[in-house]
């Protein structure tokens, strides 16, 4: 029997509140390398908050998130920011591209921040745009792109640093059905090719169906799956 690989990311007992609103009540999740997990649940169940806690955008009030064995709450703000830039990729529903920058500049931004020379960063960014079939948009600004095009550019930006994990928060939420399916297909294919793990937050069952595993959140806690102990 082959042992399952060690989790690359794990979260246990995550609690998070915003004022009096409790978003997460002891949520937990484990993610293995290359795995695709969908976090689903009704509106207000805490899906996005859990994703933000897993990605180190938010720190939980209590509970522990570890990436490759290191606790995220043990890292400083700058270290967590760099972790998100290098080891994580983030794809959001909308509003993630800098409106003043061109597609190429948006994708090259994380590499420039890592100190890469601009021609090098631009070359890598151009390769990713070509790979996601939006190379013709290199000099276009996000305001002149369709929703699907902007989402492909955002996926390119999330993958340009070859991250270990890509977090996607409702990546098809602002797109029509056909465009959404295409964007999802691109996202899943690209993460599989780069062997990155993928965490998808969605309320759409069709999106969840592409994942290896589904985690259902309700009222801030993970619902037990069919095979889980009661």
């Amino acid at each position: 029997m082959i042992d399952a690989p060690e989790p690359i990311l794990s979260a246990h007992g995550i609690h998070k509140s915003f004022g009096r609103t409790v978003a997460l009540r002891g949520a937990a999740l484990e993610l293995r390398p290359g795995e695709c997990v969908a976090i689903t649940g009704p509106s207000g169940s805490g899906k996005s908050t859990l994703l933000h806690c897993l990605a180190g955008v938010l720190l939980p009030d209590s509970g522990v998130v570890t990436f490759r064995g290191a606790r995220l709450d043990g890292l400083g703000v700058d270290e967590r920011t760099r972790l998100r830039r290098i080891s994580f990729g983030l794809v959001l529903q909308f509003g993630q591209l800098v409106p003043e920058l061109t597609a190429l500049e948006n994708v090259a931004l994380p590499l420039l921040l890592e100190g890469r020379r601009r021609p090098d960063a631009a070359a890598v960014a151009a390769q990713w745009l070509e790979r996601l079939e939006v190379g013709q948009l290199a000099t276009t600004r996000p305001t002149a792109m369709s929703g699907g095009e902007a989402q492909r550019v955002a996926i390119a930006r999330a993958l340009v640093t070859s991250p270990d994990i890509v977090f996607a928060d409702e990546p098809t939420g602002a797109l029509d059905t056909v465009t959404g399916e295409l964007a999802l297909d691109v996202l899943v294919k690209a993460t599989r090719e780069t062997e990155a793990a993928l965490v998808l937050v969605t309320h759409d069952n069709r999106v969840a169906a592409v994942a290896d595993r589904e985690v259902v959140l309700r009222d801030g806690a993970v619902e037990p799956g069919p095979g889980d102990p009661a």
Binding site: T81, R82, L90, L92, G95, P99, P110, L113
Partner: peptide, 18 residues
């Protein structure tokens, strides 16, 4: 005007110092 994009920048790894 672009607060969502600005917050997204930080979330995607752009430090606030930048």
């Amino acid at each position: 005007e672009h607060r969502r994009e600005t917050a997204a920048l930080l979330a995607t790894g752009v430090p606030v110092s930048a």
